[in-house]
Amino acid sequence: MVNVRGVRDLLSAVAAYSDWHFAIGVRIRFANPMLLYQTYPSDWVNLYAEKALIFVDPTVRWGLEHPGICRWSDLQDTDEAGVMEKAAEYGLRYGIVVSVGEASARTLGFFCRDDRELNDEEAQFALAHVQSLHDMTEGLAKASEPQLAELRNLGAVLPR
């Protein structure tokens, strides 16, 4: 059974740690996360969904193919659709992707700022907390619908 309170506390710690925006997709299968938590601006979320940018986003592609941490700036040359340039227009200019877990059910975290690259301490914090969230959600596929609803609703209380 997934500890809802533990997930809530972890998300609160991530939100409070830095002046950053983030999105965390938990246990992604077939390009769909079982849980999604984000503090991105709603205009960006809407555009991203409307244009189906997930299918051309080099940060998502990298995260699904590799475990670890990668700076968005290292993926600029692979951004043929200009996703990162569009994201920068919404204050999501400097970022990292964090990828943990097995290839069949990865958990990906995207952390970004408008003013500077994330430092190594922030990157390690992000990695540790995404790994913890992944570990905490072991067995998520067996969760009841009420528990899944409670976990999904945690995203509504995150700062925007």
Rank of each mutant, 00 (worst) to 15 (best):
N153T: 02
S12M: 02
A88M: 05
C70P: 00
D77T: 08
L10K: 14
G25C: 00
D19Y: 04
K86D: 11
S104L: 09
A143S: 15
R5V: 12
R29H: 01
R61M: 11
W44S: 00
L140C: 14
I28T: 10
D115F: 03
V83G: 11
W44L: 00
R27D: 02
H66Y: 15
A149I: 08
L133D: 03
F30E: 09
R27W: 09
G68K: 13
S18Q: 05
I54N: 07
E121D: 13
N119F: 02
T78C: 13
A105C: 09
D115P: 05
F55Y: 13
S132I: 05
Q147P: 08
G25Q: 14
Y94V: 06
V4M: 11
L35I: 08
Y90G: 13
L64D: 12
D114Q: 08
D43C: 12
E145S: 07
V56N: 11
S144H: 06
G25S: 13
S42N: 11
T107D: 09
G109R: 13
Y90V: 03
Q147D: 13
I96C: 00
D43Q: 15
E150S: 14
Q124I: 14
F22K: 04
L53H: 09
M1R: 06
E150R: 01
A141V: 12
V26L: 00
P58E: 08
G101T: 08
A23N: 08
Y94S: 04
R152C: 02
A128G: 03
Y90N: 11
V7T: 02
R29N: 02
A87F: 10
Q124L: 15
K86N: 14
G109Q: 10
D77F: 07
L140D: 04
G25I: 04
L133K: 07
A49F: 12
D77Q: 06
G82T: 08
I96V: 14
D57H: 06
L151Y: 01
A149C: 12
Q38M: 09
Q147A: 15
F55Q: 14
V100N: 04
S104F: 00
A16L: 10
G63R: 12
S18I: 01
L11S: 08
G95I: 04
A103Q: 14
Q38F: 02
A13L: 13
N153F: 07
V26G: 00
A49W: 09
W62H: 03
Q124M: 14
D43H: 13
L127G: 05
Q131N: 15
E138M: 05
V26N: 04
G109S: 01
G63P: 08
T59Q: 08
D135Y: 03
V14W: 07
